[in-house]
Nucleic acid binder design. Structure first.
Lengths: 367, 367
DNA sequence: GAAGACGCTGAATCAGCGC
DNA sequence: TGCGCTGATTCAGCGTCTT
């Protein structure tokens, strides 16, 4: 067996390409803290596949006694820790990691994630509309797979496109259980012989939702077990950069051909993420400076129970309190916090108009 | 602190009772290989810090009990290994174990299960119809919990009532994802002050399905973290024996009072286990799980000429036939087929209400 | 009395920037 | 890094009160 020497660390990322070879070695060749998101579909534990490989590509022997089972769990755990560590090094501090697995391996992966300092954000259940039935009638139909979404650390300011997810779900918060079909039909890659090109090709819809949820256009997405390249195909389509790592030359070939046919969404604007959090901040005082509100204007709370006057410096004054729109709103209610923009209103034509209305007006003017 | 001396091993099981004290000590006091099934709802190690407020400024009443606090992962792992080992000793060779948890703890529990030689059969997802939203909009709604079902070993000939699960699910294989509401309303135990008696009371429908799937009448079911006693209540109802272990004297009191009020399904035969497109499909068995129909209820045919009794697994039994609502409906009429939903009725206030009425009710609840 | 409004609550690892 | 300020954020079900 030929074993490549460890690659030197690259100084620039090999964007939109597939690195051939061992996942851990390839990860170690990349610059640290350079990747925005990692999606990983690692090999499952041996008990089903019988095809567990050690990091050095040697195959783990089949097993049928307790001692070996333990040895194999330990081997799998070492492999898991190795790639999770290597992945964590290349991940940006505010990056996040997704891992998918089944009950054979996902519990071991999840425990090691936590041990290494990753911070779990959600476990997400992919519910399959069309799972394989349980033929022997000895268990429940295994109708789902589990994904773990985690940040590099508890302090990480990870990307989450809350509004996009909510919109995707008919204006209800997106839940942790996702209903999707398995990859089949024309989406399933097949060779000329009609045989499926990869045994565990993931549906593009799954990656679509993941990338829409946790990345922004231009981000770099890495997949250390690239397989048939679903991650790359969807990343290209959605205007994200991808880096794939794959050991099997045939899978690389299949994935390259596949991705080359992908048409990116043509208009950049279609990919933009709208988020209230990212809109430019408008201080309350600006409304007064710009004449949208006059000093001395009496504001009324949404429920009509409280009033306060606008002062020239952008603070409010009520009978008992003075301070920012938020502080006075909280104080009059005796609440720990308050969004003054939504709480305070101006009476106009018999209605109460939240001052947020004026902010939106100003925001539009300021482009 | 007074610490009880280790109890000697009992030679007979304390059936249908609650053992006060530490889970591991109590497990160690029981005879080995004596338990048919264990259901465990261990502390989740939530690691909550600070307070969380809803958008309307009300405070979320989170779990902050001492029993959920662990110093670190290693401490939690030791605790997990200890109780899993003790549980495995008392489990019969052909017995099985269920554990429920969330992403905070379930991956650690799952990994330790495998390390100790338990053999995973399924991970089962409880999808909540009505989870708490994510108030800050920083994650997906945490809308599920995970259960692991495992046998004592890979060689175990565990109990699985495949046919019962299939009939409970309208003659389709039961999947690994279960849709059920959280425990609320009148089922939720409250003190005289109206405060919930236990922070994490599980719904009876969940235990109903578990016990129907993996035990038979007369089996002994053990719950080492008994809490408010849901396991005991459902076990008593379904003619299974229970043994609870609980440390908190107040929870024991609550559980005892609760279980004393439970009426077991009166006729043994009702417990025996035999081996549409646009609207969501509601299996007949769900009406029973959810308490809309009780096992033993007598159904009458629309024309009043036939009767049949409801059994706990969702089958009917008439004088000459047994099977699904459709099968028995067809058989008593000598017809080739029958829509049991329209054919079978419940007498109520002098009228015959088709069981379809209950289906519609449940459908509305489940959205 | 019925229908609708309103309030409360559930195993929750729940913010981000600037000084 | 620590502190203080700004300001973003909820779904389904049940019970009670009002119209």
């Amino acid at each position: 067996m030929t074993k490549k020497a460890p690659k030197p660390h690259l100084t620039t990322l090999p964007l939109d390409s597939i690195i051939g070879g061992d996942s851990i070695e390839a990860l170690n060749s990349l610059p640290e803290a350079s990747i925005d998101m990692i999606f990983a579909d690692p090999p499952y534990n041996l008990q089903l596949s019988g095809e567990l490989h050690r990091p050095n590509n040697s195959r783990v022997d089949g097993v049928d006694n307790d001692w070996d089972k333990f040895a194999d769990f330990a081997t799998y755990d070492r492999f898991t820790v190795d790639w999770l560590k290597a992945a964590r090094r290349v991940l940006k501090d505010d990056g996040s990691l997704w891992v998918i697995g089944s009950y054979h391996n996902i519990f071991r992966v999840g425990a090691k994630l936590q041990d290494l300092g990753y911070w779990m954000l959600n476990d997400v259940i992919w519910r399959k509309t069309n799972p394989m039935p349980n033929f022997r009638g000895r268990r429940f139909t295994n109708a789902h797979e589990t994904m773990i979404w985690c940040a590099k650390s508890a302090e990480s300011r990870y990307q989450f496109n809350y509004e996009a997810m909510k919109t995707l779900n008919d204006d209800l918060q997106m839940r942790s259980d996702w209903l999707m079909p398995i990859c089949s039909g024309s989406e399933r890659l097949k060779g000329e012989d009609g045989v499926k090109s990869h045994p565990t090709q993931k549906p593009e819809a799954l990656l679509y939702r993941i990338l829409m949820a946790a990345t922004k256009p231009g981000d770099v997405v890495l997949d250390p077990f690239f397989g048939s390249g679903t991650t790359g195909a969807v990343a290209k389509k959605l205007g994200r950069h991808y880096i794939g790592i794959e050991r099997d030359p045939n899978y690389i070939k299949v994935a390259r051909a596949r991705i080359s046919k992908v048409q990116p969404v043509p208009e950049k604007e279609m990919l933009q993420i709208t988020s209230k959090r990212e809109e430019p901040r408008i201080p309350f005082g600006w409304l007064i400076e710009r004449g949208l509100l006059e000093p001395g204007t009496v504001l009324t709370s949404t429920n009509g129970r409280f009033t306060a006057k606008v002062r020239a410096d952008g603070t409010l004054i009520s009978s008992d309190h003075r301070g920012s729109i938020h502080q006075v709103g909280a104080a009059v209610q005796g609440a720990p916090a308050c969004n003054g923009w939504q709480f305070w209103c101006v009476p106009r034509e018999g209605q109460l108009i939240p001052i947020d209305y004026y902010r939106q007006q100003l925001r539009a003017e300021l482009h």
